[in-house]
Simulated assay, not measured.
Amino acid sequence: MPHDHAIQCIHDPLLVVLSYLVSVLGSFTALQLAIGIPAAQGAARWRAIFAAGAAMGGGAIWAMHFIAMLACQMQIPVTYDLGITVASALVAIASCMAGLAIASAGVFGWGKLAVAGLFMGLGVTGMHYAGMAAMRMPADIHYDSTLVLASAVIAVVASIVALWLAFNLRGWLQMLGSALVMGVAVCGMHYTGMLAASFTPNDAGAAALAGGISGANLGMGIFAVTTLLLATVLALSMMRQRQRAAVQI
């Protein structure tokens, strides 16, 4: 069907803001958790990498993505393939863990940071388009290759900045400011990727929705669980930092 019949995606401003706030919370939590990575050894280092990677990949990036997907309201019904959705979360978390592991191994340097950022950024890009592929709807998705490339570049640059911040910040005010900036970068990548997509109806009808779960249930479930987990992890992290400071005094 020709592109002049493209289905419009109208974003709900409230959900757009909500997606940004979730990204900021995830970024701030990841920065808090990343503090202990350089000094940790053995299993403790990998636990810190997993926690920070889960906060960044699962919260700041993946949860933000699906809440932002919910913000995209179209004139057709949409459901989501659960298997692909879960796989996209694992891609996001694994790529963030890999980026943190590479950047924190040995002496910190710009070359290693660039490699880690590239690995992480491409993983984040893959997560986004896998998440798009999880959509079940009576429509076909077409992509503007220039904007797809732009979204990948934004993801890589944002990843390099995020990794640099993770290992060079200490004060919570600095981290909060950095989390606000990172939220803008993550949202910039997502909404550029959404701008790259156009949707044209097909004849699949209700069969296209089979086996999927509703966007509203998925999005609000992700928001509730992710916010609770990030808030709990963040509170525990800040408590540990206060305990360490008290012992040093």
Rank of each mutant, 00 (worst) to 15 (best):
A103S: 06
S104M: 11
A114K: 12
K112F: 05
T125H: 06
A101E: 04
S104E: 06
V115W: 15
T125N: 10
I102E: 00
M120F: 01
W110S: 03
S104T: 10
G109L: 08
A116Q: 08
L118G: 14
K112C: 06
G106R: 12
V115S: 10
A98I: 15
G123K: 01
K112M: 07
A98G: 14
A103E: 00
F108G: 02
G123V: 04
M120K: 01
A105N: 12
V124M: 13
G111M: 05
L100G: 10
A114G: 12
G111I: 12
T125I: 00
L113H: 02
A101L: 00
A114F: 15
G99W: 04
F119C: 14
V107M: 15
G99P: 03
V107F: 05
A114Q: 11
A101V: 07
G99S: 09
V124A: 09
W110T: 02
L100F: 01
T125S: 15
K112P: 03
G123P: 03
W110E: 13
G109Y: 09
T125G: 13
G109A: 14
A114N: 14
S104N: 03
V124E: 03
A101T: 06
G117I: 11
A116F: 13
G111C: 06
F108T: 09
A101K: 05
L113S: 08
M120G: 00
G121C: 04
M120Q: 11
S104R: 02
G121L: 01
G111N: 05
M97K: 14
K112I: 00
M97C: 15
A116W: 08
F119A: 15
G117D: 13
A103D: 02
L113V: 01
V107N: 12
L100H: 11
A101R: 07
